[in-house]
């Protein structure tokens, strides 16, 4: 009884480490497939439509909502200290350094990452991937790499749009509703944000999260078993692992980048 428990624990640990190894090799394949010709820009554009354009509405709407509520909350706290003219700076730095990349990453995981894992998973479950191999089409090159690249490259763009939408939301509440001067809002924003650390760091962060989500989604999809139940399991796993990885990677990146 005790022995079988210990055996199971050991088996799971070894299984998890092996999974990590497969994940790392899969990441290596994607990078290799991306660097080796033939390049398929038309496939990347098609996938950019799915992961970028279709995420645009949810990202902008969420950004606007976050900006609205952030402004409302912060104004009420700052006004107690007579520091409401710092509203723009607080909103801008919070969004650019943290909330923009992180929330966009979580939204994209839910919107595009899950769809990607489900699509690839269905292709595995319905043996389309095997069919490609039979016809000597490399499924990594034709399916996985364009999807991963498109999602990775879409992330900094989506994150920047999220931040701009949120700054606009903060402007609506802070300036239009609560009556802070528009010049005060934007000048404190402009004075606080530094290009090299804040804006570049924000874009790199978004790129990193995009690569993480793309890797996890394609890996989960590609390693799906051959049944429809497995497809839903890998979709769920993508969202859960992707979200947790983004939050952990966020801490590590922030600590190393030194915001």
């Amino acid at each position: 009884m005790i022995r079988s428990g210990i055996e199971r624990l050991g088996g799971r640990t070894i299984g998890a480490i092996a999974e990590l190894g497969r994940f790392a090799r899969f990441g290596g394949w994607i990078v290799g497939g991306f660097l080796r010709p033939p390049f398929r820009p038309e496939r990347i554009v098609r996938e950019a439509y799915d992961s970028g354009v279709l995420s645009l509405a949810i990202v902008c709407a969420s950004g606007l909502a976050v900006g609205l509520v952030l402004s409302l909350q912060l104004y009420n706290v700052l006004v107690r200290f007579g520091a409401e003219e710092s509203l723009g700076a607080v909103i801008g730095l919070t969004l650019i350094r943290e909330l923009g990349p992180v929330l966009t990453g979580l939204l994209v995981t839910g919107r595009a990452g899950s769809a990607m894992a489900a699509e690839i998973g269905m292709m595995v479950a319905t043996e389309q991937i095997d069919g490609m191999r039979t016809m000597a089409v490399d499924p990594m090159k034709f399916v996985v790499v364009p999807k991963a690249v498109a999602l990775t490259l879409s992330m900094p763009l989506l994150s920047a749009l999220f931040i701009v939408a949120a700054i606009f939301g903060g402007y609506l509440v802070g300036v239009q509703l609560l009556g802070l001067g528009s010049g005060i809002y934007f000048s404190s924003l402009e004075n606080a944000v530094v290009f090299r650390t804040d804006v570049v760091g924000s874009a790199l962060k978004a790129l990193l999260f995009g690569a993480l989500v793309a890797l996890i989604a394609t890996f989960r999809g590609f390693t799906t078993g051959r049944s429809t139940a497995e497809v839903s399991a890998s979709t769920t796993a993508t969202v859960v692992t992707g979200s947790v990885c983004i939050l952990l990677a966020d801490y590590i990146f922030t600590a190393l980048w030194g915001f």
């Binding site: 439509y49 645009l56 879409s154 900094p156 763009l157 989506l158 701009v164």
Partner: peptide
């Protein structure tokens, strides 16, 4: 989309 993203950046 790319144009909008780049202008936001």
């Amino acid at each position: 989309f790319v144009l909008a993203g780049i202008s936001a950046l």
